[in-house]
Design a protein around this nucleic acid. Structure first.
Lengths: 132, 132
DNA sequence: CTTGACCCTATAGTTACTACAGGGTGCATA
DNA sequence: TATGCACCCTGTAGTAACTATAGGGTCAAG
């Protein structure tokens, strides 16, 4: 299959496929006489894996570790579990941070009396407090 | 005050201060004879504003809109409220997305039986399902 | 035989910084 | 006076993960 078909099958943009190839995440494809990339089912499988992991928020770096690990079927999956667990911890942290941020922003917005900018509590909250 | 002092006073890195100047977020500073940047209280105020808004997750683009608006004290603060509210909506969306992602990742991790990579449910979940 | 959809490479742009490299300045100390 | 050190300067490149653009080649249908 050509790059457009592969991209469509995996929900990826064509440019992204080429980008993954360039950074070594996706192995080089065979070429047709017209120099078009020619993909097989192994490429499809790997790219699907990549997309799925990306959807779960894994970085490309973590992803290339996962791909390396997944190639050695005999190895203990401890390392895999570890990568995933650390990723989960990061997500939890991010959720906590966002919730904190949300409540502060909400407070700022609710203080707004909808007057002029001169009286705006939003601007006021962001502006520096007088130095003590 | 010199750039180091301004940076310290606002919890910013020196490079970041210069960066804000470069992109026009922070007005040009006066220079000493030695060509050092020389800041006054107005710069301190504006940089504090910038840092505070950044901590609340506003993008630099939204921020420069806020800064422009905050300069016109007579204007209605509707536009300010709008920027902040849209930002809040984005944060809510991000929180929702992360919570969904978190539960899926959690499910994947809990399926792990801690065997070999060949049996690994994490890898298996990421790998493509058979085409139907 | 030309039109349109697809493919190619290479490069630059995006966000919000951060990190050099390769210098100059200013003050205290030996 | 020299010298060491902290600080300052400019300019450029690197980060993550793509996306977009320029400038071209290929192929099948009408």
């Amino acid at each position: 299959m050509k790059i457009g078909a592969l991209a469509k099958a995996t929900g990826t943009k064509v440019e992204t496929v080429r980008y993954y190839e360039k950074i070594g995440l996706l192995p080089l494809a065979a070429r047709t006489t017209a120099n078009y990339r020619d993909y097989g089912s192994d490429h499809l499988a790997r790219l699907s894996f990549i997309r799925r992991a990306r959807d779960l928020g894994f970085t490309l770096k973590a992803l290339s570790e996962l791909l390396t690990l997944s190639d050695d079927k005999e190895q203990s999956c401890e390392a895999v579990d570890d990568i995933a667990s650390r990723h989960l911890a990061k997500i939890d942290q991010k959720i906590d941070d966002l919730i904190t941020l949300r409540s502060e922003l909400d407070r700022v917005i609710n203080a707004c009396q909808h007057g002029t900018v001169g009286d705006c509590k939003i601007i006021e909250t962001l502006a520096p407090r007088p130095l003590s």
